[in-house]
Amino acid sequence: MSEAKTPRATRRTMLALGATAMLARSAAAQRSGGPVVVSSKIDTEGALLGNMILLALQNAGVPTEARLALGPTRIVRQALLAGEIDIYPEYTGNAAFFFRRPEDPAWRDSERAAALAAELDKAENNLVWLDRAKANNTWAIAVRRDVAQRLNLRTMSDLFAAAQRGEVKLAASAEFVESAAALPAFEKAYGGTFPRDNIVVLPGGDTAVTMRAAAQGISGVNAAMVYGTDGAIAALDLVVMRDDKAAQPVYEPAPVVRAEVLERHPAIRTALAPVFSSLDLETLQKLNARIAVEGQPAAAVARAHLVAIGALR
């Protein structure tokens, strides 16, 4: 896996925080003052969103300290619970694992997932979920644009119908094909089996490899396992199929902040609301591509976007 994709895969397999995090939280002295410590996960999108939070808060006059790219989900979440950091971008669907409720159907609905994540974290941890971006970074399947246009493919329902006709060949990891949460979940929701002889299983779980196979038509592949906001989707001219039957949990990013910090600095909420409301799926794909594909620094991409939307003086 590439560095950018590893945390996305591990957040689906390493998110149980257990008693250790709660003990760390109760044992740690909560800071009563000082700068707001802004953190993020150690992946492309985490760096992008973390820098946006940092810049927006600085612009609003909120004193800050940066601890970006701190680690994977488990590490950053524990740091927030322990009061070692004050705010970071998290995904709504991860609350299903934080609170050990993965089967709750609320996680498959954008509005309900956001509301439930906020309710559970406020009640148990005194954490506040702020306004989220309407960009779902969950497991998905993307199709080469020319194929999607020729076959009129827009949704996963369309894709499964085309797969039954033998018109789609998918590049995916073994985990995606075999894990009950991935392709089998799609098959259950859409009432059909994706023909296994039309799946090319590639080693590892790097979506950069599966997307490249689809874009280049390697071994006849024209579709790929992806995460919804992968930067290379737009760069490789792929189209994400909409999960019209909600087979997958919704993973929309939002800042999560300690309530006492938000009370001390209410400008945090107003500073970040326009930032996250500006981030739809295509926008996040394009911004991630500037980092992952073009090699631009995450801080520079974040700053340029905030300037473009008028959120940074």
Results as ranks from 00 to 15, higher is better:
E90L: 08
L202F: 10
P89L: 01
A311N: 08
V200W: 02
A115L: 14
D146C: 07
P203T: 12
V38K: 01
A82D: 07
A254S: 10
Q58T: 10
E103R: 14
P184G: 11
T155F: 09
A96E: 05
A114C: 10
A214C: 06
R313S: 10
A247F: 12
E167D: 06
Y190W: 14
G204M: 13
R165A: 11
Q58R: 15
S173H: 07
A140Y: 01
I42A: 13
P102C: 11
R100P: 05
V257C: 12
G166W: 07
R150N: 08
T229R: 00
V256G: 02
D280C: 07
A224D: 00
T210A: 13
Q285F: 03
Q285R: 07
A298C: 04
P255E: 08
L183H: 05
Y91Q: 03
D158R: 05
A213I: 00
L153K: 01
A234W: 01
S40D: 04
Q78D: 13
A215S: 09
M156V: 09
Q248E: 14
G220L: 09
A259T: 08
T283F: 02
L272S: 07
R212W: 09
N125F: 15
N126Q: 15
Q78R: 11
N222P: 02
M22Q: 11
P63L: 15
I53M: 13
A289S: 11
V168M: 09
A289T: 02
A21E: 07
A133S: 08
Q164S: 08
G18K: 09
P102E: 13
G50T: 03
A302H: 00
Y91K: 01
Q30P: 09
T138I: 11
K286S: 02
L80S: 05
V239S: 05
M52V: 00
K134L: 12
Q30H: 10
L262G: 12
A213N: 04
T270W: 10
A117Y: 06
R8K: 13
T138L: 07
A4H: 02
I218T: 09
D244P: 13
V37K: 06
A60Q: 12
S157R: 08
V250E: 06
S278K: 05
G33N: 13
V226W: 01
A4C: 10
A171V: 00
T193C: 06
W129L: 13
I85N: 02
T44Q: 03
R154A: 12
S2G: 12
R269A: 15
D206L: 10
G61Y: 14
S40Y: 03
P195R: 04
A106M: 11
A267D: 15
T270L: 14
T207Y: 06
Q78N: 14
A28G: 14
I75K: 10
A16R: 15
A182W: 09
E90H: 10
V147I: 14
V307M: 04
A114R: 04
A21N: 04
A214M: 07
A208W: 03
T210L: 06
R242D: 12
T229N: 03
T44W: 00
G192D: 07
V239C: 07
H305P: 01
R108L: 11
H265K: 11
M211W: 00
R112E: 15
A302E: 00
A82P: 06
V307E: 04
S39W: 06
K188P: 06
K122M: 15
A174R: 15
L130R: 02
P253W: 00
T73Q: 04
E119K: 09
G50D: 02
D43R: 03
I218V: 15
A235L: 07
